[in-house]
């Protein structure tokens, strides 16, 4: 679905005369393959290249060196850009700054409108997408009246209406309250399971990565750690701290009270605890 081949990306800053002032390497010979239907969580501290990575997937940025292929389309070819952006949608951090229209319904239609979908088909897609995120009843309301979590779900619906194969979430929960956070992550999992949409979730929050198929930890534009949540979180606190991560609260608690194995979810915790009591 998504393939990175030795991708290097440099932010070049120039002074007033156009001479190169400084070069920041945001991605450093990154190679990666994401399969269709996978749920990937990307972790890493600020400046590790997570967002740059995300922006490469829907061709908002193009590699300085190397190649990014999304659904068989090379992102460096300008003719492919609309195809890629339709297939790989992106949810951004700030809910307010990604809503374009004055009603929920019209905002969801923004993507399909750009693609030139006929009106009857568009209304069907919009209704379907809004039902999927549970906001069908709000379709005629102004986005300004919605909560942060609801706005993010409108943004997700806006992408669903374009019938994507893959959705990239760039820290979608950073500006939300805990309730809104849970809802967004649940929606992402549901889309992954029910509709087989590939999900790439970039986040700071360890709890949100637990349900993923694979965790990628980035540092200085490279992949520092990779594996299933269990593999990654059993690396031990020392290793994780090095990359600005910490184990999820429930895992830390299980370790504190001396439960065996790497525990990631509430259910696992309860099972292990009951077993330990017996």
């Amino acid at each position: 679905m998504v393939r990175f081949e030795n991708v290097t990306f440099e932010y070049i800053r120039r002074d007033e005369e156009g001479n190169v002032d400084s070069i920041t390497t945001a991605l450093d010979e990154l190679s990666l393959h994401i399969k269709k239907g996978e749920f990937i969580a990307v972790l890493g501290s600020n400046g590790s290249g997570k967002s740059t990575f995300a922006r490469h997937i829907n061709a908002l940025l193009k590699p300085t060196e190397g190649k990014v292929v999304v659904a068989g389309y090379d992102t460096t070819d300008d003719d492919n850009i609309l195809e890629i952006r339709q297939r790989a949608g992106m949810v951004f951090q700030n809910p307010d700054n990604q809503i374009v229209a004055e009603t929920v319904e019209e905002d969801v239609a923004f993507g399909p409108e750009n693609m030139g979908i006929p009106t009857d088909e568009m209304q069907k897609r919009v209704d379907e997408a809004l039902k999927k995120v549970g906001l069908y009843k709000k379709k005629l309301e102004s986005p300004n009246r919605l909560s942060g979590g609801q706005k993010q779900r409108v943004a997700i619906a806006g992408i669903l209406a374009m019938k994507p194969d893959c959705i990239i979430f760039d820290e979608p929960t950073a500006m939300l309250d805990p309730g809104g956070r849970r809802m967004i992550v649940e929606t992402a999992h549901e889309l992954n399971k029910k509709d087989g949409i590939t999900i790439i979730l970039i986040t700071h929050n360890m709890e949100e990565t637990v349900g993923a198929d694979r965790i990628i930890v980035m540092e200085k534009g490279r992949i520092a750690l990779e594996g299933t949540p269990r593999q990654v979180f059993s690396k031990g606190e020392e290793t994780l701290k090095k990359y600005g991560m910490e184990v999820p609260v429930i895992t830390a608690l299980a370790q504190k009270i001396g439960l065996d194995g790497c525990i990631l979810t509430r259910e696992e915790f309860v099972d292990a605890y009951v077993k330990a009591l017996e």
């Binding site: 951004f92 993507g111 030139g116 209304q123």
Partner: peptide
């Protein structure tokens, strides 16, 4: 905000008025 919105619009296939349809024509 303008910068972020422009990026979000671009990510959703916005490429000017050419070939655009309307939800409520």
């Amino acid at each position: 905000r303008a910068g972020e919105l422009a990026e979000a619009m671009e990510a959703r296939c916005y490429h000017g008025g050419k070939g655009r349809t309307k939800l409520h024509p």
